[in-house]
Design a binder for these strands. Structure first.
Length: 877
RNA sequence: GCGGGUGUGGCGGAAUGGUAGACGCGACAGACUCAAACUCUGUUUCCGCAAGGAGUGUCGGUUCGAGUCCGACCACCCGCACCA
């Protein structure tokens, strides 16, 4: 067997798999199916280590499940619509379509050498007219079902570029290109009625047993069901038609602590009052800045006293002022609240700023009324003593207080208990070109008219330019002009396109029949759905996954998915990022300059790590008399590099490692092995050059071992056959459990251990060959190419990729005796070896007879002995 | 600001409430070599010559026993609805 040369074996095996059609997904009713899916990539043009990690994980699962006898579906596609393509067109000219398809070709060419077990015959891009045409068909079905509607909503408006900005294009409240102060502006837009499913999406989370607890919790908090009370304040001095002000509160028990009422700047009453220039000026102030919750909630709280009063529902003589406040959101509740500064921090800050009264309603159990220097906000499950209560007993929990207050309001008739959700409807309109066109037409006579299905797809026009900001569809000379599908009169196409989250909300279903003439094919979704294992980043914990869950329900409602697929992902795994150190210097004007890992050299000097620019040989420490002076010299020359601790690989920080370079240097198996070893898959993994080399060295060692075993004389005998068989069984057991439990790093640790055992084993030639074949199969999900070479060299039948997973003989997994540590007062002081099933009293006797124990006890009386069978003995003195 | 998560040797990490540091990297020592690299063997949590002691972000609690459970705090990461 020759030297380990991945550049030779990897293409050879990839060809062999292709020719055998090893990864073609087959609809085979005689086998259990398994659908493994990694979140599909945005075609940026370059794959990065995060992709390698994500797809290797999926590949390990896919290859493992195939070996376990499943018919596996492991597809790949492209999340191809979105802003970067338009930005590229603006910056470099060209067309988003050309840019995107070129990127897809480039990225696919980079993914192929990884040797992933993907069924490429099912590939599609969301920007393929065939895909988005089916999406448009579903949009029309959903429109018909009442799951889509139009309403006004706020967007980020750049007043200089006259265009809508995405949140990420708003930097410090300013437009990223124009630098102009961004405003919030209302626009009529399309919405999916996800709120129809709030309750359902929340309660169904309980059934997602194989989803991470944290994701379910995040979704539950996002949906945000709350039980509260809604009531109408009677107003005094309000404009006509506003004699009631509806407010919603989750703390009606604090009603006697009310200090003011506040409405959102977007509230109808605020809009009515905007006729007053002073109010208009204040509301304009509130509209400054972007639409993101982060920006709104971290903005300074400001308010405007309208002069209007409301009457307290429990005491009509008690009047509260009505303020307009920038931190009240129109989207939540009724867009109006009553403020109770004593028990809400935001209200407290507001009241302090504007000199409004702060009246405590309850105090901690056993405490006296005291002046507050911050809002007192205990958990609702905690008991408190009400000093200004009006319902329920004096001392009760917050929850009981709320329930009593609602009951009181309902009995007296001034309010009612209601359940509200934080979840808002999903705004899908985007004022951009590179997205799925919304297939409707606006007719002066008929209003909004759906496009006819036979006219789908509504294709994006190719003749567009990006020399001006804004949506080219909006200024296209002809594309917009169409006859009304209903009356035939001249009408206008909708120029908004869909949010790219729509594209990614159903691609998993399309993979089951990617060329079907309808969005899905009944028999195929029936066989392949659901996705058995979904793998992707935690950054998608809420939006993408929640939208997909909604979309699957909407697809069921419109006949595109069976009932069983309304939760499309049976199991979810969220993997961590690939990180790398950042290398930084500063230019003469003090601005940071970042450097690629390959452009710096790192060495150690004493206990110090020094990184310098360029590919230079490490200095001889003996030649440096004064290290500090020498470093200062380097720093003055500008070649001393500052090392910033690991962060997510990003182009702007240049802390990126190109997988193509790693594959060229070490091969795909090394890259795959590295990203699966060491770090647990859910955690971030730091890419290090030494780690990659170590992975390569190990694979070379395994290759050498295989070679050595291959050269053993056929009649060689040894004394270690039994021991090797036990080690093999243990390895099978551990690695199987590791892969099943997504503990790939532990599976790899077991592979290292088994390799070491095999290298040291003194067993017969047939036993060694057998163990080597098993090792190859056990390694094959992670490093399929080298495994295939070893498999064929050791006489394995057929392709390793199509061989069944080995089974561990249970009889070989049990040990007869066990080593028990002995603790004295919880500290380990000795150990004894006893038969596995020895009775506790006998274990006690042996433990106390142990030399170390006798020495440590030094005659002290023993108070108690705890024997945990098979685990530990603890002697308490 | 709000919601969620993470924190263990020089480094990545392992550990059903039961021997903290498996496995790997790095470092050190030895073998091989004219020499270096490669490879192989061994050592490697810290303090201490040793006996022994300390130790899982910090402080406190529950337990015979806590990295693991509970409470408070600190640091970092992810998300916040138009980035994908």
């Amino acid at each position: 067997m020759s030297r380990y040369d991945p550049s030779v074996i990897e293409p050879r095996w990839q060809k062999a798999w292709d020719e055998a059609g090893a990864f073609t997904a087959r609809h085979d009713p005689s086998k259990p199916k398994y659908y493994v899916l990694e979140m599909f990539p945005y075609p940026s043009g370059r794959i990065h280590m995060g992709h390698v990690r994500n797809y290797t994980m999926g590949d390990v699962v896919a290859r493992f499940m195939a070996a376990k006898g499943h018919s596996v579906l492991h597809p790949m596609g492209w999340d191809a619509f979105g802003m970067p393509a338009e930005n590229a067109a603006m910056e470099r000219g060209g067309h988003p379509k050309d840019w995107t398809y070129a990127n897809i070709a480039d990225m696919k060419a980079q993914m192929k050498p990884l040797g992933l077990s993907i069924d490429w015959s099912r590939e599609f891009a969301t920007c393929d007219p065939d895909y988005y045409g089916q999406q448009q068909a579903m949009f029309l079905d959903m429109l018909e079902k009442g799951l889509v509607y139009r309403k006004a909503a706020v967007v980020n408006w750049d007043p200089v570029d006259m265009t809508v900005l995405a949140n990420e294009q708003v930097i410090d409240g300013k437009g990223w290109r124009s630098g102009a102060a961004v405003e919030r502006r209302e626009l009529v837009q399309w919405f999916f009625k996800i709120s129809d499913y709030s309750e359902e999406l929340l309660t169904a989370l309980d059934g997602l047993k194989d989803w991470p607890e944290k994701v379910r919790l995040m979704q539950a908090n996002w949906i945000g069901r709350s039980r509260g009370m809604q009531f109408g304040f009677e107003t005094a001095g309000a404009p006509q038609g506003f004699d009631k002000l509806e407010v919603y509160t989750t703390r009606p028990d604090t009603l006697m602590g009310a200090s003011f009422a506040a409405i959102s700047p977007d509230h109808p009453l605020a809009k009515e009052l905007e006729k007053d220039p002073a109010v208009a000026a204040f509301i304009a102030e509130c509209r400054k800045g972007g639409t993101s919750a982060e920006e709104i909630e971290t903005a300074e709280k400001i308010g405007y006293d309208t002069g209007i009063k409301v009457k307290h529902p429990l005491d009509p003589a008690w009047e509260l002022p009505v303020w307009i406040a920038n931190f009240i959101l129109m989207d939540y509740g009724t867009g109006a609240i009553f403020g109770c500064p004593a028990h809400d921090q935001r209200d407290f800050d507001f009241a302090t700023k504007y000199g409004l009264p702060i009246r405590p309603v309850f105090v901690a159990e056993g405490a006296e009324d005291a002046v507050l220097d911050a809002a007192f906000v205990p958990m609702k499950s905690e008991k408190v003593r009400y000093i200004r209560g009006f319902a329920g007993v004096e001392t009760q929990t917050g929850d009981e207080g709320v329930a009593a207050a609602i009951a009181h309001a309902e009995a007296q008739g001034y309010g009612r208990g209601v359940t509200k959700f934080r979840l808002r409807d999903w705004g899908l309109s985007r004022q951009r070109y590179w997205g799925c066109p919304i297939p409707v037409v606006h007719c002066a006579k008929c209003g909004v008219v759906p496009e006819k299905k036979e006219n789908l797809p509504v294709r994006l026009p190719d003749d567009v330019s990006f020399d001006k900001p804004g949506n080219p569809l909006d200024r296209h000379p002809t594309w917009r002009d169409v006859p009304c599908p209903a009356c035939g009169a001249p009408a206008r196409r909708e120029t908004d396109t869909m949010d790219t989250f729509v594209d990614s909300s159903w691609y998993y279903a399309r993979f089951t029949s990617p060329r079907a003439a309808t969005p899905t094919d009944k028999a195929e979704v029936e066989y392949w759905m659901n996705v058995d294992q979904y793998i992707g980043g935690i950054e998608h914990a809420i939006l993408h996954l929640l939208y997909s869950r909604f979309f699957a329900r909407a697809m069921h409602a419109t006949g595109h998915l069976p009932q069983k697929a309304i939760e499309p992902f049976n199991a979810l795994f969220t993997q961590g990022m690939v990180t790398h150190e950042i290398y930084k210097t500063t230019d003469e004007r003090g601005r940071p300059v970042y450097h690629l890992p390959e452009d710096v050299t790192s060495f150690t000097l004493g206990d110090r790590r020094v990184v310098v620019l360029g590919d230079v040989p490490p200095p001889d420490p003996e030649l440096i008399a004064d290290v500090d002076a020498w470093l200062q010299e380097l720093a003055d020359a500008g070649s001393l590099v500052e090392v910033i601790p690991s962060a997510k690989m990003s182009k702007s920080k240049k802390n990126v490692v190109d997988p193509m370079n790693i594959i060229a240097q070490f091969g795909a198996d090394t890259a795959r092995w590295f990203v699966m070893s060491d770090s647990p898959p859910e955690r971030d993994v730091e890419w290090t050059a030494s780690g990659a080399e170590a992975a390569y060295k190990h694979l070379s060692r395994v290759w050498g071992l295989c070679s050595r075993i291959g050269e053993m004389p056929a009649d060689h005998t040894g004394t270690g056959d039994d021991e090797l068989a036990r080690a093999t069984a243990r390895a099978i057991d551990e690695i199987t459990k590791g892969i099943e439990g997504f503990a790939f790093n532990k599976a790899i640790a077991s592979l290292y251990a088994f390799t070491n055992t095999l290298a040291r084993a003194n067993a017969s030639t047939p036993a060694m060959k057998e163990a080597m074949r098993t090792l190859a199969k056990l390694m094959s999900p992670m490093v399929p190419h080298i495994a295939e070479s070893i498999w064929s060299y050791q006489g394995g039948a057929g392709l390793c990729a199509q061989a069944p997973w080995p089974k561990a003989d249970p009889a070989l997994l049990v040990d007869d005796s066990v080593t028990l540590p002995i603790q004295i007062n919880g500290k380990r002081r000795g150990e004894i070896v006893v038969p596995k099933d020895m009775a506790a009293p006998e274990v006690e006797k042996r433990a106390l007879a142990n030399e170390d124990v006798i020495k440590f006890l030094a005659g002290q009386p023993v108070k108690k002995i705890i024997v945990v069978p098979g685990r530990i003995v603890n002697v308490v003195v």
